[in-house]
Design a protein around this nucleic acid. Structure first.
Lengths: 236, 236
DNA sequence: CCGACTTTTCGAACATGTTCCGAAAGTAGC
DNA sequence: GCTACTTTCGGAACATGTTCGAAAAGTCGG
């Protein structure tokens, strides 16, 4: 294994370990033992170095995970975007969602401060496409940012809540967020009856997304100023 | 301190510690040392018991936090709900958001499987109000559940992303989600310029919520079947 | 009063992410 | 070659949530 050639003007002991090696070792470890087994100590052992040394190449575990995430997103196929702006927003947001939903460490990373900014070009196109769709629909850039942020919150929430159910062994009983909520405790659910479990566990991300996009685009391009209290409800 | 009287038909060593005492000790600890200092070991020490003992009265730290959360929500004022169904949904969802946004351990608890089901009556009214508003607007109970779930995801996402920024000392630079995203990396943001930091950090939860509620209610009560691919975009 | 059973209690230990501080191993200037 | 200086390396340690296994302290049926 050839050690990386020292760059010119560089001082100090040359590293025996590179970020590329770390990434490769991480992937090896995941493929062999499963993603739950990826821990700082194990990764260091896999590299044959001490844990502290590993911390000289990555800032955090979060840092490592973002590295892995970008690598993972890179090898995903890019869907081609529809021409209609509204549909483009929906498709791009769905792509973003799907890419992250399959990611085991979503919960550890998604809420990170500045997460969106740490995405590679391979993932950033989805953000761009959402913004572009909103702008093409008639939004100002500032409004497009607001649109993206709202969609981002919705997406993060969905992924995190579902991811949590997946992590804990809820053995065949996927009940995100509602969980054991007894419909009898909520008067307005009393009429539902046996269908409750299936109803509580439905996957409605795509449906909700379309409703959200419609609402956001309508709000942004409606004549009424969206700054403070839009429409019928002005303040409380 | 009188030990709790043994209930009839009960066997085994009577407990020296009750859940009420645990909750009181937790509150004492938080008031004295700040909420970041609430740890299992410290709480056990505050109670004068071993950490393992504490685990016989609470299942998890999550369990403890839900206990605290319900206690916290209980002493919040209930806003009175407007008559218009759509506005009722917005106000109730906002109340839910505001109650949870001020909660330091939101990130540890909100995504928990079955979280909504573990809420006390003091918090459950907000869920009910959202459902009731949707139903009064013309939704079926099943649709109302979908509406709530979507709003829940959006709310959880917003709170978690913002909470993360608050936890880490981002000292006066609150940049939720977008963080250090360089607008130059995203072509459609190039025109923005100096206003970017302020733009990236805007608080648009209420605005986005109104757009979302409008979109969801419109979708649920529109003539087109919302089950699969609504409107112009039917599948990919 | 005695033995079986149940519940509570707890010290020790484990795995985790992370930090402290010192040692090793190079480069740069002389 | 020698002396600074910079960078990498790593063992030990810390705090965290959580679990193990055993001991203590009650209740209940006889």
């Amino acid at each position: 294994m050839p050690r990386p050639s020292a760059s010119p003007g560089r001082t100090g002991r040359p590293p025996l370990t590179s970020r590329a090696q770390i990434l490769a070792a991480a992937r090896r470890l995941i493929d062999r033992d499963g993603w739950e087994k990826l821990t700082i100590r194990r990764l260091a052992a896999e590299l044959g170095i001490g844990t502290t040394t590993l911390y000289h190449h990555i800032r955090d575990k979060e840092d490592l995970l973002v590295l892995l995430l970008n690598h993972y997103v890179e090898q995903r196929e890019r869907p081609d975007l529809p021409g209609h702006p509204r549909d483009r927003v929906v498709v791009a947001a769905t792509a973003l969602h799907d890419a992250l939903a399959g990611w085991p460490w979503a919960a550890e990373v998604l809420t990170a401060d500045g997460f969106v900014g740490r995405l590679d070009e391979s993932a950033l196109w989805m953000v761009e496409a959402v913004l572009a769709g909103a702008i093409d629909h008639g939004c100002t850039p500032a409004q497009a940012v607001d649109v993206f942020r709202s969609i981002w919150y919705y997406t993060v929430g969905e992924i995190l809540v579902r991811a949590h159910s997946a992590h804990r062994g809820t053995g065949g009983r996927p009940l995100p967020s509602f969980g054991d909520l007894d419909p009898a405790r909520v008067p307005h659910l009393a009429a539902i009856g046996d269908e409750w479990p299936a109803l509580a566990a439905r996957d409605t991300y795509p449906q909700g997304l379309r409703a959200f996009v419609d609402g956001l685009l309508a709000q942004a391009t409606s004549p009424a100023p969206p700054e403070e209290g839009s429409g019928a409800w002005n303040g409380r």
